[in-house]
Each structure stands twice: as structure tokens, then as C-alpha cells.
Design a protein around this nucleic acid. Structure first.
Lengths: 195, 195, 195, 195
DNA sequence: TTCTAAACGAGACGGTACGTCGGGTCTTATA
DNA sequence: TATAAGACCCGACGTACCGTCTCGTTTAGAA
């Protein structure tokens, strides 16, 4: 029914890059909702068939574009100062949610996963889970080094740190400033029982 | 250009109710994304023109439908026990984000406001701001009554309480259980310097 | 399954005329095969949906365009001289098969009916049969008036008169000239036993 | 621009036969219009490139398939009885236009030549002209032997014999029966002045 | 008999058009 | 004059084939 899957070995890297770039560009110019597969194909000088051959949806293209662009820029900093490292990382998340060219794309994907289960799974596996894991590893190290008490609830910690950032994004409140992030971190560390 | 605004006095309440009900029904059945104005009109036995006369978009219909359904069911409980009241309220939010018939509609609106500034403004004014205010009023009372220290940062408190709930929703992680909410509340109160 | 049929009373005559004209124009400019529904819609300033609402196929549009253009220009001449009347009529058929703007359209329809049974039925009923009938009526009158013998086979006569015209068209041989038509008519009348 | 022409000596006869067979099969199964080069290649287990290397179009494949299948089965019978020979031959034409596996292919080619001049030329040269010539040769012999008068117009004769057959085909009227062919022949011979 | 240039299968590619869907506007008839 | 009904223009959808173009892999003629 579903046709033979295409052979990745013969894939045109040139087309792939053109598509990812066009998708990000259009997303920045017109916003996620007004970015269409049709326009991506036209901008990339590519046939729609080529897009649908390799990606199931607009969201999947942009997820790959983001992963392609981020390429794990510093998995999670570790300078020995947990609060400082968290601030660095959380500020990066705010920028990811906010700044072009990735902001509109990532924000769009976050809306799409509410409707597209396949994309949701992909986003979890390829984007969210690795970053959550990296954060927990950093927190675990802080716990081992005494920056956090031995019984600190790391899962909750992650949600207390990042929750407010996504809260503001989802409800379209003004994004966290660096100062406010510092305050947030101080509170959460206190909540975890840090000295 | 824009025609004369319609006369609300002559509006058909019968049509209005049918439209709101049809919108919620379809949103529950097919999800927000697959709910179309076309289908709402057909289901409600109403012409598309009638819908566009009174609402600018699908999101606006569903916002009104939600506001119509909630009608401020308990603005914010106040039993004198802040933690218990927060748990009640936060659990209600989890249910709002999760359970039919309002869950799909509210979740859909949260995605729509990323693209629709007019809807965003309406949601802020009619839905979010009053609830945030109510929460802050409750917290302020708790501060006055000594459940929270006099210098507790109430804005941050709200975001620490509700942030994790929206974090889980936006990233489509499993919703908070009541037990987990209790833990969350305890941590946040500690972070605010509660006894 | 098939949706409600549209209401002809509310049909836009303006759109209908624009579509028929655009279809004939394009057929003349690019030929039947390169005339697309897409291009007809664009040329007519009309949405594709409007076309598909009223016609099932490109061929159906052009059939209507032809019927609209011909509007029975002289059903069949009757001057009292059968040979002369046949020559007039047969020459008109040659021109219909040959000359713009109707030639390309009619020729295209003749190919389409080989594959499209619904169109075939429509062409028979709305175009071919009435003309064959008119021819037979004229021949019958000639028989009554003694220009043809009483036992002349009129069905065969029609096919002997018109067959060679369609033979040349189908095999793309040069179209019949008026002189050749005269010769043809003389032979066929002799074959029928005319004086 | 056009690349080097391929070397026929190295051509795969196996592929050629598979392609011709697949083309005829598909034409019989789905009809000419729904027969695609894509499907022929797949059915024949052959790459599209191989097809386009040796044929310019679907019609050219089927023309070759037909010529391959007919291989001049009896150029034109000559039993000494013109009417009988014509009946044999004309009945063969009716079958060619009608019966699988060649009928759909030939009928399809007759539509294609309306749009494809190169194919048209090929069909004339390789198929139509030789058969018309053969018919005229047979008629000329009949004229010499007194079955037809010395001044019989042989070109017209061919068109009177075959025209009605193509007329019925092109307009999709029921094909000529053998009895009707006999009547037709008698009339045409009378029109030519035969005894 | 080995070498090597071709023809080959497979199928990805840029395109064009398909027929369908829904958006938001506009018209007509009804109440 | 607000409605129900729905036709309209528009833009995008995802699919089907087109004809061109690499890819490795046979394979058959010349060395």
C-alpha cells in the first residue's frame, strides 16, 4: 500500500540543505503558520515530491532544520558553578524560544506536536529527552559535589527551572530576562534545600 | 470597507448557543486542528456568514465557548490553608488542560495565540489575567496571614506554581498527578521562605 | 459520499461564460491536449472548485462550449436539391473538424470519448444523435420526393456520406475539399440507386 | 545536446520484448489512457531510462508492439473475388479496432496521432500507407480483370470502403457486423459502376 | 580470456497538473 | 434586517507521471 521506502544512499544532500534553509527562512519571514510546503519547495528550487519523499510534514522539516542548526552547541556547561551554568543554559533556551531564525521554527513545532503524534515522538526523542537528560546529569554532578543536598528531587528541579520559561512562552508573556533567571535559579535552589 | 457592525440586539441567541456547542463537540471529537468553521456551521445548522459576523476566527468561538462553560467556577478557593487551596486550584488547571470537553479547546487556543495576536489579547484579558490576579490575591492574603514571609515574590510564585504544569502540557509530558502537585507546592513554598 | 449536488438556480452565468470562452481560447492556442483545467480556471479568473462543481472533466466543458457556439446553425439545409444540401452540410462538418476555434475542441472531444464513457454518452445525446437524425430526416424527404429510390438504405447512406470525412480526420489525412465532396456525393447517390 | 545515439547492436532483446508485452498487457487491462510509461517499466522489470533510450513515447512503443504482433498477416487476400476479399480484409480491420489485445492499443494510437506529429508520421509510414497501397493494388487488379470499370476512382473507393468503419469507431457506434460489411461493399461497388 | 565501454535496473530528481479541502467573502431567498 | 443556504475566488494540500539524470551492475565485443 505504502510504496517502497526511498534509498537514503542516493539522497541529494544539495536538495536537503536547500530545503532546510528555505524552511527556516520562510519561517522567519512569514511565521510558522504561513510557511507552506509549497513555498518551501519553490524557494528551495525543489519538487514537492522530493520533500514528501523524505519528510512526513512541515514540522518534521523544521525539526531537522533545528537539529541541523544547533548541532549540540555545548551539551550543558559545567564550570563547577551550578547556578552560573544553569543561567547560561536557561538563557540559551529563552533565546531558542525567541530569536530568529530558530525561534519561530521551534515555537511552531511546539504547537504542532499538540496535533501530530509522530512529530511529537520525534521531538521527544531527538530534541527534548537528550536535553532533559543532560540537565539531570549536570544536576546529579552538583548533588555529588555538595551544591545540592543528597535527597534533591532532580526531576522536579528540571521542571521548576524550565517550567516558568515555557509558561511564559505558551501564554505569550514577555520572555525571561537574565536578571529574572538569576532570581528564579536562586529560588529553585533554595526549594531543593541548597545551602 | 468593513460594513456596518451588526446590531447585537437582533442577534439570535439560539444560533449562538448552537455554534458554541457544535464547536466544543467537534473539538472533542476530532481535535482542535481538524475542527473547521465549515463543520461548525454545518453541525450547528447555521450559515458560515453568521459565524463570521460575530466571531473573527475559530479560536474566538472556542474562547467564548470555554468562558461560557467555566463561568468562573470558584474564582479561587480560600479555606485558610494555602497549600490545600493551591492544590485544588492547580488540579483544576490540570483538568482544564486535559479533560474533554474543554481540554482540547483550551489546548488548541494556546497554540492559536502563537499566531493570532487579536486572539492572544482576548485570551489574556478574558481568561489569563483574571486568573493570575485571583491567584496573586490569594497569595497576598496568605502573606498577610503569615503563611508566606512578608518579602515573598508573588509574581515568581505564580510562575513557579503554574510553570511546571504548562511545561508538561506544552512538551506533551504526562500531566501532573495530585500527589506530584503536593510535592511541587511544598517545594515552591519552601523556595519562597515559608516556614 | 458524493456531497449535495449544487443548486443551478444560483449559478453564476458570468463565470460559466468566462470558463467556456477560456476553454475554447486555450484549446485554439495550445491544442486540446495541452489545455488544462488549471489553465482554464486561471484564464477565466475562476476557482478550480467552480469548474469541478459544474463539469466533471475538461471534455465536458468543451462539449458545452461547442454546443453553446453552434446553437444549431441551420439544422440541415433543404433547398430541394439534395446533393447541394449535402455538400453544404458536409462542408460544414469538414470545417468543424478543421477550423479554429471549434476544430481543436471537437477533435479533442473525439479522442476523449474513447476513454470517458460519461462524456461519450453526453456527446452522443447532445451532439451526434440529433445531427444524424436531422440528416436522416432530410434524406427521407428526398426519398419521398423521388430524389432517392424508395428502398434506399438511409442508415448506410449517412455512413457513406460522413464516413470518409471522419476517416480522413482520424487518420490525419488532408481534409476533403469541396470538389472532392461533390464527387463523393455523386458516388454515394449512385450507390443508393439514384437516377 | 542530444547525447550519443545508442548502439542497437548491444540492445537487450529480452528487455525489448518485455516492454512490448507489458505495454500491450497494460493497455488491455487498464486502457490506453491509464497505461503509463512508469507502469510499463515496472511491469517489464525495466528502467524508465531504457524505455526512453529506444522509444520517444508511449504511442511509439505500442505502434511497435502492434507491428510486432501483426507482422503482415496476409497483406491483402486475392482469391479472384473482390467482394469476398474486401469482406475478409474489412472484417480484419474491424477486429483490429475492436478486439484485445491490439484493439485498445490501436485505438489509443489513433487518438495520440492527433497530438503527436512524430508518431503520426510513423503511423502513416509504417502502418497506414502500406495497407492503403495494398488495398489499391488489389482494387487495381480487380479493375484490370473487369470486376470494376476502367475509370473507377480507386482513392475514393478506399475511403468509401474504410470510411464507415472508422466513422463508427471514432464516434463509438457499434462496430460493423459481417453482414453489414457485405451490404456496404455491394453499395460501394455499385457506386463505382461495377456491374 | 580478459578488459572495458555500453546498456542496463533502479530510482531520485525538478516539474506540471491533478482533484479536494477549507478559508473568508458575497449573493439570494426566507422569516 | 438577521438568517440559512451555499456559490464564489483563492491558496494549499498530497499524489501521479512526466522526462531527465545519476548511480552501481551486468554483459558482450574488442583486445
Amino acid at each position: 500500500m505504502n510504496g517502497v521506502p526511498p534509498n537514503p544512499a542516493r539522497r541529494s544532500e544539495r536538495s536537503r540543505q536547500a530545503i532546510l534553509a528555505a524552511a527556516l527562512d520562510l519561517c522567519t519571514e512569514k511565521g510558522y503558520a504561513r510557511t507552506t510546503v509549497e513555498a518551501i519547495a519553490a524557494r528551495a528550487g525543489v519538487s514537492k515530491k522530493t520533500i514528501y519523499r523524505w519528510w512526513p510534514s512541515k514540522g518534521a522539516i523544521l525539526l531537522e532544520a533545528i537539529n541541523n542548526a544547533v548541532v549540540m552547541t555545548t551539551p550543558f556547561p559545567d564550570t563547577g558553578d551550578l547556578a552560573a551554568d544553569l543561567c547560561t543554559q536557561m538563557h540559551a533556551v529563552v533565546k531558542l524560544l525567541t530569536n530568529p531564525p530558530l525561534g519561530p521554527a521551534y515555537a511552531g513545532i511546539l504547537t504542532e506536536i499538540q496535533y501530530d503524534d509522530e512529530l511529537c515522538r520525534a521531538v521527544q526523542e531527538e530534541f527534548i529527552n537528550p536535553r532533559v537528560e543532560a540537565a539531570k546529569i549536570r544536576l546529579r554532578r552538583a548533588r555529588e559535589q555538595g551544591e545540592l543536598p543528597p535527597d534533591a528531587d532532580l526531576d522536579l528541579a528540571v521542571e521548576l527551572f524550565y517550567g516558568p520559561l515555557y509558561y511564559r512562552h505558551t501564554l505569550r508573556r514577555p520572555p525571561y530576562t537574565r536578571e529574572r533567571i538569576v532570581t528564579l535559579i536562586a529560588h529553585v535552589m533554595r526549594s531543593l534545600g541548597a545551602a
